[in-house]
Design a protein around this nucleic acid. Structure first.
Lengths: 137, 137
DNA sequence: GGTGTATTGTTCACATATTGATTATTCACA
DNA sequence: TGTGAATAATCAATATGTGAACAATACACC
């Protein structure tokens, strides 16, 4: 069971990387972009990202550095709390997201084509339940 | 869904590492030990391990090096095929496995206590089915 | 036998992730 | 106001994972 999850995780990760390679980004970077894309004002701070993405904050620093270097997001100091940093999608970042979205959707399509919708719902429910076991320490 | 699997994978990995730390080994090393423990003669070669563990062979080399250094397994050249290497659990390795087994079982117990046996079977079935989607490229 | 090809395991260089210490700031509270 | 604890982000060191090139051996085939 543990091995099953490990394999699945690896495959998902690798497949996503393969699809994203033409755009010069990898799966973790994609995750960050998509989380910002799904946010009011396309804006988050590093610690919110760390929570949502399940990455360590040190890792977020590295990943967002790369995204900044590529001009996909922007870093600005927060006014309300000067410890915080505000990350915002740039127009360039938005354009890129919308350009790879079709390919990503096709990937997700491919990955689920053999599963009944009912199975997917069921799987998600059980995964959540299982994960709850862990969180409850 | 993808994030769910990522989180779950991470939690399983981290929890196992936490339990294993007192013995000075980590989750990947534990996996290797357990695979050998579950084998006739406590013996495998690196490529079998790589397949079973889903690690790259280069990684297996590093991990088995560490286990050799710690005296938990032994490397010997294979007679039948001189390209191959035979990895065998040492008495020391066996002793260690049997010493941490109770704690590992307790961990697994904790992780599944809230799940019905039926749910676990179902979850495993769906995960396998989902994984098949990917393998079929 | 000799030759080309596949397999096994290792090594090295690089990419990616985590840990622990460090800096700057905020907050609670006397 | 000043002091200590908590929080946000970063940095340097280390651990972990991967890909490409390599050496040694086996195997198929003529």
């Amino acid at each position: 069971m543990v091995r099953l999850i490990k394999h699945l995780h690896k495959r998902i990760h690798d497949d996503a990387n393969a699809v994203l390679r033409p755009w010069g980004i990898n799966h973790p970077e994609y995750n960050i972009l998509m989380m910002m894309y799904g946010t009011e004002g396309y804006t988050l701070n590093p610690s919110q990202l760390a929570d949502a993405a399940g990455e360590k904050s040190a890792n977020i620093t590295r990943l967002t550095n790369e995204l900044c270097d590529k001009g996909l997001i922007e870093r600005t100091a927060s006014d309300e709390d000067r410890r915080k940093i505000t990350l915002t999608l740039t127009a360039e970042g938005l354009t890129m997201i919308e350009s790879f979205l079709p390919d990503i959707c096709a990937l997700l399509e491919r990955q689920t084509v053999g599963m009944q919708a009912r199975d997917m719902v069921q799987l998600e429910r059980l995964l959540k339940k299982f994960l709850d076991q862990f969180e409850g320490d």
